[in-house]
Every structure is written in C-alpha cells, then in structure tokens.
C-alpha cells in the first residue's frame, strides 16, 4: 500500500506539476479582471498568493517528518513544491509592489520602516539562493553543501509566518496557527531522535 503510493508519487511527471501550478496565478488574474475576486481584487490576489506560498512551504516541511513517521514519501515532489512556493511568494511581492503600494518612493520606506514588510522581504531574499540552485546541475555541483544551503528554508519559513502574524489586526487565530505549525515543524528537525537512520533533513 505504502510502497504503491510512493511509487505513484515517484512517477508523477514534474512538468505536469509545474503546468498545474502555473494555472493558479493565471486563474487569479482572470478572476481579478472579471470581478471573480470580490470587491478588493488587489488584496484578494496578494493574500491568496502569499498564503498558498506559505502552505506549500509548510507542505515541504512536512515531507521529512511524514516519511520518518509513516514511511509515506513525498520526497520526489519536494523540489517542485519549493520552486512553486518561491514563484507564488515572488508574485505575492510583485502584486504588493505594483498593484498595492504603487508609489516607488514609498516602497523603500515601507521595506525599511515597517517591520512586517522587512521580515517578509528578508524571508523572500532567503528563498532567492534556494530557487537559483533548484536545478540538477547545482545539486551535483554543490554536493553536500546543497543540503546545507537548503536549510535556509527553515529561517525563511519562520520569517514567512511571523510576517503573516505581524500584518494581522487584532487577535486572530489563523496566522497564529501557521506560526505554531511552522515552529513545530522546524523544531522537529532539532529534536534528537533515537530511531536509527533518521536524521536532520
């Protein structure tokens, strides 16, 4: 059963996943232009891209614990998930920049002066080297350093959920839930385990 599932996962063509992933921003844009995103399509698009990006990062962080706890392995999909998460978060930033803030002079002021923007930007910057080294050549070239570099996902994910929490007004459950889940998933990496074969990753 488990083996069957894992082999199905292995056989999913990556290009198909990228195609499906590209549909979502296109769907958002189409709906934003035709009134399908409600009264405030700018915020709807901005928040949807940010949140789905964050959800993909959470999914990426779940893969290792899921595998070591259940044997179910989504590992073959991890790089696709990471790359798609990066592009969604990049688009989240572009929508914020172009459609929301608009005024260029204000953008630098916002990035430097508004802590939640600073935190979000820092998270996005950390994803840049990860996205740039997400090709097979980089994996081969960097060797063991690739794994090390890609641990930047942990601080980036933490910054992402803190960014989400900081921009909410008042006491809200959803961003707090994200913070707890991501802190938990990152902390899991640093808890020593007795089981042989499991390691930080």
């Amino acid at each position: 059963m488990k083996e069957h599932f894992n082999s199905v996962i292995r056989r999913i063509p990556k290009w198909a996943l990228y195609m499906v992933a590209a549909l979502y921003p296109a769907w958002l844009l189409y709906n934003g232009l035709t009134g399908g995103l409600g009264i405030d399509p700018v915020k709807a698009m901005e928040h949807a891209l940010g949140k789905v990006g964050l959800q993909l990062i959470v999914l990426g962080l779940i893969i290792t614990p899921l595998r070591s706890l259940t044997g179910v392995s989504l590992l073959p999909l991890r790089r696709v998930i990471g790359v798609v998460a990066f592009f969604y978060i990049l688009l989240h930033f572009v929508v914020w920049l172009v459609l929301d803030v608009q005024i260029l002079a204000q953008i630098w002021a916002d990035i430097l002066k508004r802590p939640y923007v600073t935190v979000g930007m820092a998270g996005l910057l950390m994803l840049l080297p990860l996205a740039a080294t997400s090709n097979n050549r980089s994996v081969r070239k960097l060797g063991p350093r690739w794994r090390k570099l890609h641990k930047l996902t942990y601080p980036a994910a933490l910054l992402g959920v803190i960014h989400y929490l900081m921009q909410s007004r008042g006491f809200q459950y959803e961003p707090l839930l994200y913070v707890v889940v991501v802190f938990g998933l990152v902390a899991w990496r640093f808890v020593p385990r007795r089981r042989a074969g499991s390691r930080v990753g």
Binding site: G32, I39, D40, P41, V42, D100, Q106, D110, R114
Partner: peptide, 13 residues
C-alpha cells in the same frame, strides 16, 4: 504602514 495615500475600493485591479 504609511497613511500618506489610500486605495479607493471598488475600482478593480
């Protein structure tokens, strides 16, 4: 955030 400008709601994307 800055209060120097505002986004009028209802005008689309």
């Amino acid at each position: 955030w800055s209060q120097a400008s505002e986004r009028p709601i209802g005008g689309g994307l």
